Simulated assay, not measured.
Amino acid sequence: MDEVLIDIIKSSGEKDKFSTSKLRNSLRKCGAGEELVEQIVGQVREELYKGITSKEIYNRAFALLKNKGAIFAAKYKLKKAIYELGPTGFPFEKFVAAILEYSGYKTKVGKIMPGLCVTHEIDVFAEKNGELYLLECKFHGEEGRNCNVRVPLYIHSRFQDVKQQWEKNGKHDVKLVSGGVVTNTRFTEDAIKYGTCIGLHLLSWDYPKDNGLKDRIYRLGLYPITVSQLLTKREKQFLLSRDVVLCRQLIKDQFFLDHLGISKTRKQNIIRELSQLSSHGSH
């Protein structure tokens, strides 16, 4: 199908051209078959009008997907589900740590470390193969808010302070390799340029290309519990407050559902949904 040259309004307020290939890719990523993808793209194209917002397009595609399969819809909702981890950002830190653990890192969240000048609270402390990374998580609860160059500037100076103290101390089994920034939104061009130049690890919703946050979640099947279509908002909040952030964790620790007083039948349905999501990683 040809592209439709129509202006849409992005969440940041900027104008952009509607892209059928972008919509098609996001539908494919959540597991929808080609026939369903073309059906939804065709329907959305017919309903486009000048000045439509990207949110309206998303809502429409989500509604059409939900009619066809709750699992597709849950996966399509991933970005929104990560916003729902808020408002404090602490569940997002737990979520980032959990993703890293599935990639073989040992992690700690909210660790206090001394710098040469002051002490610092490190969001995620990640260690693998004798190498240590100190990561700062920048969580935004709404779309359109990106990480600008000030973020890596600030993180780098904190890392340098900790590193100087670390090297001065000298009695460590692991090597302090670098700092990093993880965000659920995007980095500005300057933030990427500066962060890359000074050797910070950068991870955002779609950066690095094909290995951003969304790609890792899809690939490993590490969905946050907020994607569930069956759990209520209150139930999700309860689970997050008990540090249950991944669907996989809840499958393992099902007793949390008993604490919520969920009936046996509903519990089975929830576990089935979570299992389908967790096994949908494209390994």
Rank of each mutant, 00 (worst) to 15 (best):
2 D>Y: 12
2 D>L: 14
6 I>M: 11
11 S>I: 04
15 K>P: 01
16 D>W: 09
17 K>T: 14
20 T>V: 11
23 L>D: 06
29 K>Q: 13
30 C>M: 12
31 G>R: 03
37 V>P: 01
41 V>C: 10
45 R>I: 14
47 E>R: 12
51 G>L: 02
52 I>P: 05
54 S>H: 07
55 K>N: 11
56 E>V: 12
64 L>A: 07
65 L>Y: 02
66 K>P: 00
69 G>W: 05
72 F>A: 05
73 A>M: 04
75 K>Q: 10
75 K>A: 03
79 K>W: 11
82 I>K: 01
87 P>Y: 03
91 P>D: 01
96 V>C: 07
96 V>Q: 00
100 L>G: 01
100 L>M: 09
100 L>W: 04
106 K>M: 12
110 G>A: 03
112 I>F: 10
113 M>W: 12
115 G>I: 05
116 L>R: 15
122 I>M: 06
124 V>R: 00
125 F>N: 11
125 F>Q: 06
128 K>W: 01
135 L>W: 01
137 C>E: 01
137 C>L: 07
139 F>V: 03
140 H>V: 10
141 G>V: 09
142 E>N: 13
144 G>A: 07
146 N>D: 13
152 P>N: 08
156 H>V: 08
158 R>A: 14
161 D>G: 06
166 W>D: 08
171 K>I: 08
171 K>L: 15
177 V>S: 09
179 G>Y: 04
180 G>Y: 04
190 D>R: 11
190 D>K: 12
192 I>H: 02
194 Y>T: 08
196 T>Q: 11
201 H>W: 11
208 P>L: 02
210 D>N: 15
211 N>R: 15
215 D>N: 13
215 D>K: 10
219 R>P: 00
220 L>W: 06
222 L>T: 07
223 Y>N: 07
224 P>C: 07
228 S>K: 01
230 L>V: 03
231 L>E: 03
234 R>L: 07
239 L>A: 06
241 S>G: 15
242 R>K: 15
243 D>K: 11
245 V>T: 00
245 V>P: 01
247 C>K: 00
247 C>F: 02
249 Q>M: 09
250 L>W: 10
252 K>E: 13
257 L>C: 01
260 L>K: 00
261 G>A: 02
262 I>K: 05
266 R>K: 15
268 Q>S: 14
271 I>G: 02
280 H>F: 15
283 H>R: 15
